[in-house]
């Protein structure tokens, strides 16, 4: 949407982000990412593909092993802990399990009052009115004195969303904010997120629900085993559109929609050499190539780059998007 135009300023710029968990598995492996003001970037991928870790790296909740994150032009690694804490007001995260990120001993009101005190000290004198305003906006009237355990799942989620938007962040990483919510509450949470700060808050929207992502996001990233394997305009994420080329993994995800026209079956995972050393990490489950194919050696030896297929759409796959040097 409007956020796509290049003149709007960058909120976040990440280069070469990697993070390896103890034990040697690369959760995030060489990710570059730019998010502009007010832009909603969707991030999809299977469980364990590194989505949540990437979100945490971007906010320096986990410091990256390699790579840099610049938030509003400032390199987060160069900030002192104190300065970094101050930027926290402008970069917020909604964690996956709403219930677990609320303090069971505090009431809804106390959660929000604390947020005002920490992140908007200038408004501390009218904290009470501000909390009431927020509760009304998030349809939590009458819940101020309740503890999290007395709320339904949808209400807990709204408290978490309200709390994360109260500091008026310019970037919000929302990790599956709609998982497990029913359709009406889901639509409700989505609308609250989209209208945050009159559309000036940028989002990284992490979700499994491709239809929700397509509706919410301007741009969608697909992650597989720690890498971004595809980057596309949100409209391209359509199970019923078979014209658009996708990464084989995206293809499989989309074909699993109940209304999809054809189902791509993934072959049984093939035993392969160390997937993390070299080559495409999806080759073990890929339906576009096989060990007997002439293309296999390329897939198993070279990690594919993100190659543009058309404007705003890049795919990292030797088969779907061969790089210009290979093609020649």
């Amino acid at each position: 949407m409007s956020a796509q135009n290049a003149s709007s300023s960058l909120v976040l710029q990440a280069k070469g982000l990697s993070h390896r968990f103890p034990g040697g598995v690369a959760a995030v492996n060489g990710v570059d990412l730019e998010i502009r003001e007010g832009e909603v970037v969707g991030l999809v991928g299977e469980s364990g593909s590194g989505k949540t870790t990437l979100g945490k790296l971007l906010l320096h909740i986990i410091p990256p092993d390699t790579g840099r994150v610049a938030f509003e032009g400032q390199d987060l690694a160069e900030l002192s802990p104190r300065e970094r804490r101050r930027t926290r007001s402008r970069m917020q995260m909604i964690y996956q399990t709403a219930a677990a990120s609320l303090n069971p001993g505090l009431t809804v009101g106390q959660h929000l009052e604390e947020t005002v005190r920490l992140h908007r000290p200038e408004d501390a004198h009218r904290a009470d009115a501000l909390v009431d305003e927020t509760l009304t906006a998030f349809r939590l009237n009458g819940k101020r004195a309740l503890h999290p355990s007395q709320l339904s799942g949808g209400e807990q989620r709204r408290v978490v969303v309200a709390r994360s938007l109260l500091p008026r962040p310019s970037l919000l990483v929302a990790d599956e904010p709609t998982a497990g919510l029913d359709a009406s509450v889901k639509a409700d949470v989505i609308d609250l997120l989209r209208n945050a700060r009159g559309g000036r808050t940028a989002f990284l929207f992490i979700s499994h629900e491709l239809d929700v992502v397509r509706y919410v996001a301007d741009r969608v990233l697909v992650m597989y085993r720690g890498r971004i394997v595809e980057c596309m305009p949100a409209a391209a994420l359509d199970p019923r559109d078979t014209e658009v080329d996708h990464h084989p993994y995206t293809e499989r995800l989309l074909s699993a929609a109940f209304k999809a026209t054809r189902r791509v079956e993934s072959p049984m995972i093939r035993p392969t050499e160390d997937l993390f050393k070299a080559g495409c990490s999806y080759r073990a489950a890929c339906h576009r190539t096989e060990p007997d194919d002439p293309s296999w050696s390329r897939c198993s030896q070279h990690t594919p780059d993100l190659i543009p297929l058309r404007a705003g759409h890049r795919v990292s796959c030797h088969v779907v998007a061969p790089s210009p040097t290979e093609a020649s």
Binding site: V44, E176, A179, E209, L254, A256, A257, S266
Partner: peptide, 14 residues
């Protein structure tokens, strides 16, 4: 009881 909550589409379908 909601056996597919939080699963990706491919697993949900399975």
């Amino acid at each position: 009881d909601e056996p597919t909550t939080g699963l990706d589409w491919s697993v949900r379908r399975d």
